[in-house]
C-alpha cells in the first residue's frame, strides 16, 4: 500500500517537472497574439439581465460578429449592482481581448456613487459605441396619470407615496429620477430591480407606479397598450414614438441637461493589445453596419451610431460629465465629480 502511494507521487512529480520546462519556452510574443487572435471563444459579458436592451442588442449582434471574426462569441448575463458586477468581472479577466463588456452608460457613475472603482475612462477602451437611445417615463395603462404634469404634481402633494422602480444606483431610471426630484421637487419612493426587463415586469404587475426605461425596451408594450409613455427625455419627440411629448414641452428647465440618454457599447480591457483591439473594432464595425443589424436597431427604436476610437472616447466622456454633475447637483452622489477630475459640461 505504502509503495503504491510512493509510485503515484513519483509519477505526479515527474509529470509536474516535465511540464515546467514545456511552459517556459511556450511564451509567445505580441505579434503572434494579434495574428492568431482569436484562437478560442470570446466571452461577451452583458451587464444587464435577460430581456433588457443591452441583452437584446448583444445577443443579436453576437452571431454577426462571430461570422466576421471567425470565433464563437459566448454571451452571458452578469446582472447586478447597476452593472458593476459585470464591469468588475471583465476588468478582472486577462487583457487579451477574450472577454468583452456589453454595457450601457452606468459605469460612468460608479466612482461618484461609490459603487465601484471602475470607470470606462480609466479601465476600459471602447471597441465600438453601437447605438444610443432615449429614456422614456412610463406608467401602466390603468394609471390615473395621463401626462407628466399630473404625475409630478401627485408626487409633490404626497411625497414618498408613489413608487419609482429603478435598476439600482446610477442606472438610467435613477438619473431620470434625480432629474425629476432636483428640478421639479417631486419625491418618490424607490425600489431597485435587476434590470429593465424585471422593472418592466414589476410595472406590468403593478408593483411600482412609475419607472423610466429606454424607449426601445418599452416600445412594444406602449404599442400593445400595456404601458403609457408620459414623456421622452429629449428636447423633441423621437421618430419611433412620434406621439409621445418631449419632457421639455412641460418642463423647459430640464432642457439644460439635454441631450442626454443611454447608449449601448462594447468595451475591452484597457490593456488589450492594439492589434487585437483593431481586429475587434473592425469586426464590430462591419457587423453593426449590416442591414440585418440596422433593422434590429430600428425594431428596437435605437439610433445607429457605430463610432469607435477617439470619437467614441469623447462621446463617453461627455455623457459622464452630464450624468455625474447632474446627480451631484441633485445631492444624489456620495462623492463630488471633482474628486475624479470629471469636467463639468458648460451650458451653451
Amino acid at each position: 500500500m505504502k509503495k503504491n502511494i510512493l509510485i503515484i507521487i513519483i509519477i505526479f512529480v515527474l509529470a509536474a517537472c516535465g511540464s515546467e520546462t514545456e511552459n517556459a519556452d511556450g511564451q509567445v510574443d505580441n505579434e503572434d497574439v494579434t495574428s492568431s487572435y482569436p484562437e478560442k471563444n470570446i466571452d461577451g459579458i452583458i451587464m444587464w439581465g435577460e430581456g433588457g436592451a443591452t441583452d437584446i442588442i448583444g445577443r443579436t449582434l453576437a452571431p454577426i460578429v462571430e461570422d466576421e471574426i471567425g470565433s464563437s462569441l459566448v454571451m452571458q448575463n452578469k446582472a447586478g449592482a447597476a452593472g458593476a458586477i459585470a464591469t468588475q468581472y471583465v476588468y478582472d479577466q486577462s487583457a487579451d481581448g477574450y472577454t468583452l463588456l456589453f454595457g450601457a452608460e452606468n459605469p460612468n457613475l460608479y466612482q461618484v456613487l461609490d459603487i465601484s472603482e471602475r470607470s470606462y475612462q480609466e479601465d476600459f477602451v471602447p471597441v465600438s459605441i453601437i447605438a444610443n437611445s432615449f429614456a422614456g417615463i412610463i406608467v401602466k395603462e390603468d394609471s390615473p396619470y395621463e401626462n407628466l404634469e399630473e404625475l409630478v404634481d401627485a408626487a409633490k402633494e404626497n411625497p414618498n407615496e408613489l413608487i419609482f422602480g429603478t435598476t439600482g444606483e446610477g442606472g438610467l431610471p435613477s438619473v431620470v429620477l434625480a432629474m425629476l426630484q432636483n428640478e421639479l421637487k417631486s419625491e418618490f419612493r424607490t425600489v431597485p430591480y435587476e434590470g429593465e426587463g424585471p422593472v418592466s415586469t414589476a410595472l406590468l404587475g403593478g408593483e411600482v407606479d412609475v419607472t423610466s426605461v429606454t424607449v426601445s425596451a418599452a416600445q412594444e408594450y406602449v404599442e400593445s397598450g400595456d404601458f403609457r409613455m408620459l414623456a421622452v427625455v429629449n428636447d423633441e419627440p423621437i421618430d419611433s414614438l412620434p406621439d409621445v411629448p418631449a419632457i421639455t414641452d412641460a418642463y423647459p428647465e430640464i432642457g439644460k441637461y439635454l441631450p442626454w440618454g443611454p447608449f449601448q457599447a462594447v468595451f475591452a480591457h484597457k490593456d488589450t493589445p492594439t492589434g487585437v483591439l483593431e481586429k475587434l473594432t473592425e469586426a464590430f464595425e462591419t457587423a453593426i453596419e449590416t442591414d440585418e443589424f440596422k433593422e434590429t436597431l430600428a425594431n428596437l427604436g435605437m439610433e445607429y451610431m457605430n463610432i469607435s476610437g477617439q470619437e467614441a472616447i469623447d462621446f463617453v466622456d461627455q455623457n459622464r460629465s452630464t450624468s455625474a454633475w447632474m446627480l451631484y447637483e441633485a445631492g444624489e452622489t456620495e462623492k463630488s465629480p471633482e474628486e475624479f477630475n470629471i469636467p463639468k459640461v458648460e451650458e451653451e
Binding site: 505526479f12 509529470a15 509536474a16 516535465g18 511540464s19 515546467e20 511552459n23
Partner: peptide, 8 residues
C-alpha cells in the same frame, strides 16, 4: 490533478 491540469 486540478493543479496539473493548468500546467500540463
Amino acid at each position: 490533478y486540478v493543479f496539473l491540469l493548468s500546467i500540463i
